[in-house]
Amino acid sequence: MRQTIESINQTFKGQLDLERHGARTPAGVIIRVLTRILALTAATWHNDRPDNRSSVP
């Protein structure tokens, strides 16, 4: 379980650039983190849709 949590944490730090969020208030940090998570989720969903995959190699 710990390894899974650490893996997710590293993914968030790397892909979402959470160590340099640039927010000035705690509310700003929350908004920026949630926005980046939403963007990553939307991109993943979009890329995994069956109609986005080409049947031609």
Rank of each mutant, 00 (worst) to 15 (best):
M1V: 03
R2E: 00
R2W: 00
Q3S: 05
T4N: 11
I5Q: 14
E6I: 08
E6Y: 12
S7P: 05
S7N: 03
S7W: 02
N9C: 14
T11V: 06
T11C: 01
T11F: 03
K13Q: 15
G14A: 15
G14Q: 14
Q15A: 12
Q15V: 12
D17K: 14
L18T: 15
L18P: 09
L18N: 11
E19N: 14
E19V: 11
H21W: 05
G22C: 12
G22T: 10
G22L: 12
R24M: 10
R24G: 11
R24E: 11
T25A: 03
T25C: 04
A27D: 14
G28F: 03
G28H: 03
G28C: 07
V29I: 10
I30V: 15
I30G: 06
I30E: 15
R32E: 14
T35E: 07
R36M: 02
R36K: 07
L38M: 08
L38T: 10
A39Q: 10
A39N: 09
L40W: 15
L40K: 15
A42Q: 06
A43Q: 12
A43D: 05
T44G: 02
W45T: 08
W45K: 01
W45F: 14
H46S: 00
H46A: 04
N47T: 03
D48R: 01
P50F: 05
P50G: 05
R53F: 02
S55C: 06
V56T: 11
P57A: 12
